[in-house]
Design a protein around this nucleic acid. Sequence first.
DNA 1: GTGAAAGCGCTAACAT
DNA 2: ATGTTAGCGCTTTCAC
Lengths: 354, 354
Amino acid sequence: MPVTIRDVAKRLGLSVTTVSRALAGYDDVADATRERVIQTAEDMGYTPSHAARQLRRKRTDTIGLIFPTLGNRFSDPFFSEFMAGVGDQASQNNYDLLVSVAPPGEDERNAYQRWVQSRRVDGFILVRIRRTDWRIQYLSENKFPFMSFGRSQTVNGAPHIGVDGKSGMLELTRHMIEMGHRRIAFIGASQELTLSRDRMEGYLSGLKEAGITPDPDLVLVAQLTRSTGHASALQLLQLQDPPTAIIGINDLTALGAMRAAQELGLNIGRELAIAGFDGTEAGEHATPPLTTVAQPVYQIGSEACATLIDLINNGQHESVQQLVKPTLIIRRSTQPDGVNQPEEEGTNHQASSP
Amino acid sequence: MPVTIRDVAKRLGLSVTTVSRALAGYDDVADATRERVIQTAEDMGYTPSHAARQLRRKRTDTIGLIFPTLGNRFSDPFFSEFMAGVGDQASQNNYDLLVSVAPPGEDERNAYQRWVQSRRVDGFILVRIRRTDWRIQYLSENKFPFMSFGRSQTVNGAPHIGVDGKSGMLELTRHMIEMGHRRIAFIGASQELTLSRDRMEGYLSGLKEAGITPDPDLVLVAQLTRSTGHASALQLLQLQDPPTAIIGINDLTALGAMRAAQELGLNIGRELAIAGFDGTEAGEHATPPLTTVAQPVYQIGSEACATLIDLINNGQHESVQQLVKPTLIIRRSTQPDGVNQPEEEGTNHQASSP
DNA sequence: GTGAAAGCGCTAACAT
DNA sequence: ATGTTAGCGCTTTCAC
C-alpha cells in the first residue's frame, strides 16, 4: 500500500490539512511545522496521489499529443524531434505528456473526444494541420485549450505557431532559378495539409517571378515519405523532357528523390539539383549533403508547449499566433561539382515537417 | 461543466449505481434498462471521469515510457518506431501512453519515482537497458510491473524481450570475413549498455572464429549517433594501416561512417565495406544501400507492451523472457561494384537500437 | 433488478 | 497557525 497524506499526518500528529498546506507551500503554516512535514514526507516517500489531486483540483497537469500518422508507422524524424521539444518544455513546467498515435478519421476523433470528455488532459498540441480540420473546430467549440503547429482555415484566430513555408519555398525556388534551372519539378503532398499548400504556393510564386509557366507534368503529389519521393522522382526523370531540378516538399521526399537519381546514374548537383524542406540531420549527412529550408522543429515544439501551458493557466491571450521564418541552407545537392561554398548555417540538427 | 454519471442518472430517473452497472456491462441489469442507459449516455456525451475511476479502481490504464536520451535531442528513428509499436498495442487494449524524456541520472530517477509513487501509471516499458540498471532494481523491489527491451544483470529473471545482438553481429562479421576482409573495425558504444556488450561480443567471436586477433586501434567507442559515427570513421580511415571494413554498432553510426568514407573519396563496397545494425529505413535508402542486421523494432515494442499489460492484469507469468533473432540483410555497402545480389529480405522498414 | 451509502486521497472553505 | 468538514465522480458492498 502506497503512503498517503493521512499516513504522514498521523505520524506527525497533525491534521491532513496542515500537511497538505505545508507541502503546497502555503504561508499560513509555521516554519518549524513545514520543515517537519517536508522532512517526514520525504522520509516516508510520500508523493500525492495523482488521481486524487486531479479529481479535486480539476486539473490533470497533462498535455495530450496525438500523432496523425497515415500508415501504421511513422519514421519521419519530425515526430521524435518535435515530441522532444514538447516533452522537455512540459517537464520543466511539471506537466506530463500523454501520447497517442491515430490516423486521421474515426479513431482520431474518438481519441480526442475520449481525452476531452474524460478530462484526461488539460490541453492539446496539434500537428499536421489540415485545411479544414475537425480537431480545431471541435476543441474551439468546447473551449478546450490547444495549440497547433500550423494554421487552419477552420477557425479564425485559433492559437498556433507556424512556419512560413511559402517564403521558405520561394527562397528555395529562387535559388534554383539563380542556379540556372528552368524546369524545376515539385514533389508535393496532399493539398489537404496546410503545410503542403503553403510550400506549393512558394514554389509557384518563385516560378511566376521568373516568368516560368508551371508545367503540370512537373508537379507531383506524394506522401512526405522517402519511398513515395523515390517513386515520384523516377517518374519525373523518365519524362520526355525531364526536369533539371527537383524540390521535395520535405527532406524525406528529397532524400527519396536523391536515391532515384543515383540509381539512374545522375550526378546530383551538376546534372540534377535536388532540395528539400525541414533541415533534418538525415539531409545534412546525405551524399551529397542536401540543400534545404530549415525549420527549428525542437524549438517550435517547445514554444508551442510553453504557450499552451500559459493558455491553460491564464486563458486566452492577446496574440497566440506566431510565424517563424525558416532558413535556406545551401549545400552540395544544388551546386555543380567543384563549387565548394560553405554552408550558410553551422551544424544544424533539426527535423521535418508539421 | 462536463457531464457526469449523476447527470445521466437524473435524466433517466435511475440511481447512479444502476447507470454505472449498466455501462460496465454487469448482468444484473434489465436489458431494457441497459439499452436506455447506453443510449442516453451516448446522447449526452458521457465519458467517465478518468480521475474518479482511477481513484476508485486503483488502476490508471496507463503505461509509462521514459526515453533515456543522452543529449537533449533524440533523432534515432528507433524511438519513434518503437513508440509507435508500444502505442498501437496500448491503444488496442484501451491503455494510454505517458511519455517522458529524461537522460540517465538524477532526473530519470525522479521521473520514475514520481510516477510510481503518485500511482500515475500501471507499468513501465524500459529501453536502452544498462548493465547495472537502477530502474530494474527499483521497479523489482517495489513489485511494480515493467517490461524491458534488453537484458540487464541487475535483477535475475526480470521480464524482458531482447534481440540476439551477439548472434546478429556474429553473422555480420562472418559476412565481412567471407568478403575477404581481415582488418574489420568496430565502432561501438558505451559498454554500460547491454546492447553494446552483446554486439561487441558477436564481433569478437566472429574474429576469433577466423583466427583474427582483434586490433585495439580498430575498436572505437562512439555514441550511437550519426555524427560520432562520422568522427570515429575519420579517425579509423586516417590510421597508418586503415581497416577495409567498418561495422557500426547501429545504422546511424554506420551512416555517419559512410559519409566520412565518401568525403575521403572512397568507393564504398569496393574499397571499403560498411555495415550497421537495426534495419532502419534510412539505411535502406542510403547510397549505397546499407548492409545491416535488422531487428523488428515495431513488433518488439508491440509485443513488449502486450506482455506488460498481461503482467499488469494477471501478475507474474511463467516465461516473460523472449529472444528475437535479427536478420542479416546484405546490401551494396559491403559488396564490390558490379555484384548485384538481391536483398535477402524484401522492403524492410524498421528502426534502430534499444 | 435496483437503490442507499461508504469511501478512494486529496484540497479548500470555513471554522477556531 | 492549525483543525473540521465537505465533496470532487466514481465503483462497490450491502440492502431491499
